[in-house]
Each structure stands twice: as C-alpha cells, then as structure tokens.
Amino acid sequence: MAKSALLKSSLAKKYWMALTGLFLCLFLAGHLAGNLQLIFGDALQFNKYALFMTTNPAVKLLSYLTYISIIFHAIDGIMLAIQNKKARPVAYAMNNPSGNSSFASRNMAVLGTVILVFIATHMVNFWAKMHFSQMPLQKTTIEFQGMKNDFYITTDGGYVPVNDPAYVIKNKTEIYDANVNLKIKDAYKDLHKITFDFFRDAKWGLPFTIFYVLSMIVLAFHLLHGFQSAFQSLGINNKFTPAIKLFGKLFAIIVPLLFAIIPLYIHFTK
C-alpha cells in the first residue's frame, strides 16, 4: 500500500512536485550565485568556477539530482495537467476564474512548459557546448619585453604559449608536450568568452537577450505560485506561512530579476 500510495496517489504526486520544485529553487540560488560572477568577477574566476562545477564529484552528484528533478518535475507536472484536464471534460461557457485565483496559479503547466523549452535552449547554448564541443580555451595576453604574446592559463596557475608547436591540445583541454606525447597541463574552457560572444553576437545577441529576459519573467510567475505552493503541498501551513509566502514572493522576483540582468548587462556593455 505505502509504496503504491507514495507513487500513484494524487497527494503523492503533489509531494514529488513540491520536493523537486523546492530542490530546483535551491539549484536556482546556487546557479545564480555562480552566474553573477559574469558581472562581478573576471573571466578567469568564472572559468575556474565553471571547471569546478563540471568536475567536482559532489557537484556532479548534485547536478544529476538536478537533471532528475527537472525531468521528474516536468513529467509529473504533465501527468497532473492531463489528469486535471480530464477531471473537467465539459468546460464552462462562462468562467471568471480571475475572481478567485491568481494568473500564475492557474497557469503553472503552461509556464512550466515555457521554462522547460528555455532550459533546453539554455543547455544547448552553454551546457552542451561546455560538455561536448571543442571550446575555446582561456587565454591571456602577456606583454614581455615589448612583445605581446598569447598564453593559455593552466589550472595549476601556469602559462603555456599559444601557437607554440611544442605543445598540442588534446581531449579539448589537455596540453601535451608535442615531442614526448605527454600530458603536462590542463587549460580552462573559456565559458566566459562563449557567454559574452553569445549575447553580443551581431545577429543573434539581441534576440537571445530578449528571449532570456522573457523566460525569466515566466520563471518569476512560476516561482510566484510554486514556491509557497510547495510548502502547502507538503502540509506546511501554520503560523510561519505568511513569512514563507513573503519569502517566496521575494525569491520569485529577485532571483529571476538578477538572472535577467546578466544577459542585459553583457549585451548592452559591448
């Protein structure tokens, strides 16, 4: 009974929506903290962070949890939406739902779908590049005796000259000694450059900036209802509820707002 109840029943679906949703809120907070380095940090700091996020085992575990949460949240949400649709086969000829409920609360499925599309786009734009394609590596220009030379910055804090035949790049980031075919250092993937190029692209920079900002508005509405709703679903409705609701509102406004500022900042500071 317990097992099936916790998977199948209407209430269990709500628990899972709530738990995954709240976990994704945590993810958002973390992701935001990292991304703000695009504004407040330099390229190296950001790329170090990006490397850390893609290699640290604990972070990896969290990231898998995040992927699962997103998928579960989406599938569960779609199932709920289908079931809910079925519960009212004949629609009202005249309906006035704005009299008793908020826009966000009534449109979680639509808002969620838009966010899902955004996440897919976003991952193609950055995550997939980071993981699968040959990224530019972070370089720096050092002026030495009046000569400007480009160097790769390596993860151990060293520099390896670019365009020096003594070194070859293998496996996307590994720097090999060309003579002995031995890996000597790792370079940083330059996600920072990818990001800045992306939003500053002559042709697509503006449309993508707008798309990202709009998506964050959608996210804001989703969170506006979703955050406090998760607590209700988990059975938490008590004297702290007004505080939870207030925090949820602030979270729903501040987090997407800061997220939205990043592409705007990048695009309009070129």
Binding site: K14, K86, A87, R88, N100, S105, S229
Partner: peptide, 15 residues
C-alpha cells in the same frame, strides 16, 4: 476513494 472518483489534483490555486 477520492482518486477513484475521478477528481483532479490540487494545485493550490486557492479558488
């Protein structure tokens, strides 16, 4: 029983 009757789920709209 509520689930068997075909009622929908709660999405906390508060209506």
């Amino acid at each position: 029983q509520m689930d068997e009757e075909g009622f929908g789920n709660c999405t906390n709209t508060g209506a």
